[in-house]
Design a protein around this nucleic acid. Structure first.
Lengths: 346, 346
DNA sequence: TTGTAGGCGTTATCAT
DNA sequence: ATGATAACGCCTACAA
């Protein structure tokens, strides 16, 4: 209700002094500062964000762009991590979701003018098209990629060692004696590339490296994507394909835990025992993975997001990153959903 | 980079016309509107939020205040639900976390001036102190409570039928034959009252109503709160108390699923079989509940948050709610974590 | 249907 | 250490 000017009158100083005092600038005499503080508290005064923003040019707003719901495990953890570092610095962290290609295009189409509307951008998950990442840098919008890939690198990024992770997984299954293995894509509704799709590539690469032939390795769904299908229908469909695959694998890697949980349950319903008949490896180490006794690959998106936010912070403040890109490694957590293949056991 | 004025020049019209055209107001000739749209796109122009905000008085910013991390199941779902209705209307949804009492106090202390900084407020989980809810209404800040309780009701609220839920739970356990039952509080780190604590009260009330005596019903932790303790230590501690309780219950209700998962695992480790030795009922119907085969009480915070956001929307637009308070009911989902008590079985 | 003019509440620059 | 004075970019009467 009351403005900075009212505070100035009450404290018997000028507007500028109030502004300086309230923002903790150093050229204010302690006594004056205190008088101002009292007047402000007295009046219940708070700076108006939009006015400060307009005058200063800083919006104190960073957007985090997701390719799916914020209640998905990975996204919620990113949000929390970034919030933990940004909020104490006074930034708003605004989640924005672009689930469809038009939405994504729209977001980037509006980018040119958006410099006035955000101080920074965090991009988790997206496999960014080059034109987009270029636009970002040429518009001088501080942005950091969070487990995001693109040919044209952004100036800052947090990357997950997906390659190492998949090599670990394949090596692990190979060590258990599995000779027919499969990779299961997450039936994501997002119609554009997500960086987790990269894992498929590395899985195949690792398999080949370990001596698996094409016939030994299957990807589900193979080609005909299960698109635009409710997610559990898609999962059911995929589980069906796995079970009825001509050369059914004895072990599968699933792109994310949340999908693995579902698939495990469906396998059991179909009479396929895990791990006796089929080994399952997940990805994420979701809180429920221990509960489900799921062997999985641990990652910590909350931590990665903190790192991303930290980098963004220094960029927004005009600093230089001493390490533009930081890589996080994964850890394979062996649990009860994996075992040697059927024929190997007594 | 370019301003509304630049667009006006390019389109050969006045600033106000551009403003009107861009915001879709009706008093603009289609042809003019199009010319403006083209000029805007051409220049990559986007309205500057802070300027619009300052001039119009609307911030297009609604904050959602949480008492814990946004990656908690309930919170993440609230966020997603509210986002789904607010984002399409152009609102930023800004998550703010107040985990400690000072943080909460600080938030409300700054409220008087905050009217200029937010158009609305969503309050999940808090057991609001009256002074706070009164401040909100007297400051005319549109706010809606989401499963939040306070003596002084806010003008709008979404309430969960916690009472009905707990009566269902007690009735269910009673029907299975349990004569000694327990209620397990969530070892929340938040030092202030959360509305889920209400459930404890209703549980006790229901138990009494069904004929349980004080000796038959135990609350964990009983009195000495497990405060300021890392959450899993607290859970371990609580599990220990349950197991070693003098008159150990044969069935427990746990305040939220996430805690129930943990407790179930610990019980098993301690050799207590679920449900043979101990029945467990959760609350939430978290995605992992099916996986854990946990009998639980279903609620849908995402849906509730949508409703909350909808109410907020009409309030922010000056409308009147035809139903200030909406109550959502719960459903008990029987699964494998509950069974008759030990002595009842052959 | 469109244009004109004033003001929204701060910050920044330049004095003092 | 503090004051005066322009911006900042848009919206909203009001006028035409």
């Amino acid at each position: 209700m009351s403005t900075l000017h009212d505070v100035a009158l009450a404290a018997g100083v000028s507007d500028s002094t109030v502004s300086r005092a309230l923002r903790g600038m150093d050229t204010v005499r302690p006594k004056t500062r205190q008088r101002v503080a009292e007047a402000a508290k007295q009046l219940g005064f708070t700076l108006t964000r939009s006015a400060s923003s307009l005058a200063s040019g800083k919006t104190m707003r960073v957007v985090i762009l997701f390719d799916g719901p914020v209640n998905a495990w990975f996204n919620a953890n990113c949000l929390q991590g970034a919030l933990e570092v940004l909020a104490p610095e006074g930034y708003d962290l605004v989640p924005v979701i672009a689930m469809t290609r038009p939405e994504l295009e729209d977001f980037f189409a509006k980018l040119p003018g958006s410099g006035n509307n955000m101080d920074g951008l965090i991009l988790p998950s997206f496999l960014l098209e080059d034109s987009y990442s270029q636009a970002l840098t040429s518009l001088h919008i501080p942005a950091v990629a969070l487990d995001t890939s693109s040919t044209t690198q952004l100036p800052a990024s947090i990357v997950l060692d997906n390659k190492g992770a998949m090599y670990d997984a394949v090596r692990f299954l190979h060590g258990l004696g599995h000779r027919r293995i499969g990779y299961v894509e997450h039936p994501s509704p997002a119609p554009f590339e997500s960086s987790s799709h990269l894992r498929e590539r590395y899985f195949l690469e690792a398999a080949k490296r370990m001596g698996y032939t094409d016939g030994d390795v299957t990807v589900f769904p193979k080609q005909s994507l299960v698109e635009r299908m409710p997610i559990d229908e898609a999962t059911a469909e995929i589980t069906g394909r796995i079970v009825s695959a001509p050369n059914r694998p004895t072990a599968i890697c699933v792109e994310i835990d949340e999908a693995a949980f579902d698939i495990m349950q469906r396998l059991r319903v179909l009479g396929i025992r895990v791990p006796q008949d089929m080994s399952v490896v997940g990805f994420d180490d979701h809180e429920a993975a221990a509960l489900a006794d799921l062997t999985t690959i641990h990652q910590d998106p909350q931590l990665m997001a903190r790192a991303a936010a930290q980098k963004l912070l220094t960029m927004m403040r005009g600093g230089t990153l001493d390490e533009p890109s930081t890589t996080f490694r994964t850890t394979l957590i062996p649990r009860g959903s994996t075992a040697p293949p059927p024929q190997d056991r007594p």
